[in-house]
Write a protein that binds this DNA or RNA. Structure first.
Lengths: 140, 140
DNA sequence: GGTGCAATTGCAACTATTTGCATTAAGGAT
DNA sequence: ATCCTTAATGCAAATAGTTGCAATTGCACC
């Protein structure tokens, strides 16, 4: 079963209604394989369904984010980007000066997630963390 | 010397021009002692200066953020909040379900910052990290 | 297969933030 | 103190994202 069927089925089990619009958004997001904006999803969506609306895209992305199927990232480029967790866990190191985005892994992340869980009972989503700072080039 | 004089002087040294508007924004932000929105800063600012503009506030906050004097946080409440680092380092644990924000400290943060610096040469700003997830109440 | 009700949609209006551009003014040189 | 350069401002228009509401439609129940 594909990743997007899993998402759709789980949403249905949780009491959400599955509309064609939602299926299309999930499909586009799950197959994007990269970070994508709401606008891009809307553009692709319009090729598949006659009448639809940007706010439906935003609302669906909200649901996916609340339910833990998508991550949203403000990479400080003026737009928010979204991805499914399929895209793989990593940290975005976003430079405040040049806006460059460096993808990183951190072995410390798991330890931090565990610490947060044990101390605060908070289930942190560390799949796509954005961390701001100054990149090597800019601090040189 | 107060914190906001330090900021102003450093900005001047770095080649920024110090306008009354900038001084006021820095002063309000440095003395807020909490997270504050651009709109709140603008409201307070209007009590001190006749003619001014919201976009000036946004532009000044951008500079302060780029130069490392302020942090910006999207707490997913529809507005972005700002603070100086004076406010003290901590993590915001933001619940995706109920939007509750829990402030936390993490001993693991320093280790992570060090790891990121040594592996990627990236100077991460971990003073005010926002981490999304599900809070203890909502996961119960 | 038909019915009912509440969730979801499309639309339009609204809020938050950014940007282009003409004007103003900071601050280094004189 | 005045001049000059160019960064910063104010304004208005644009862009990103949200929200209220009437119309539509999924889907649970018969």
């Amino acid at each position: 079963m594909s990743h997007c069927n899993t998402i759709i089925d789980t949403l249905r089990q949780r009491g959400y209604r599955i509309t064609p619009q939602r299926e299309i958004v999930v499909d586009i997001l799950a197959h994007a394989g990269r970070h994508i904006t709401a606008e891009e999803i809307f553009d692709q969506m319009q090729k598949r369904i006659r009448v639809t609306n940007l706010s439906t895209v935003y609302r669906t992305l909200d649901v996916l984010w609340e339910e833990g199927f998508a991550c949203r990232n403000d990479l400080s480029e003026g737009k928010t980007v979204y991805a499914t967790h399929q895209h793989g866990p990593h940290i975005h190191l976003v430079c405040r000066r040049c806006d460059a985005v460096l993808d990183a892994n951190s072995q410390v992340l798991d330890a931090m997630g565990e610490e947060i869980r044990s101390r605060y009972g908070f289930d942190a989503d560390l799949q796509h963390l954005s961390i701001f700072g100054i990149c090597a080039d800019c601090s040189a």
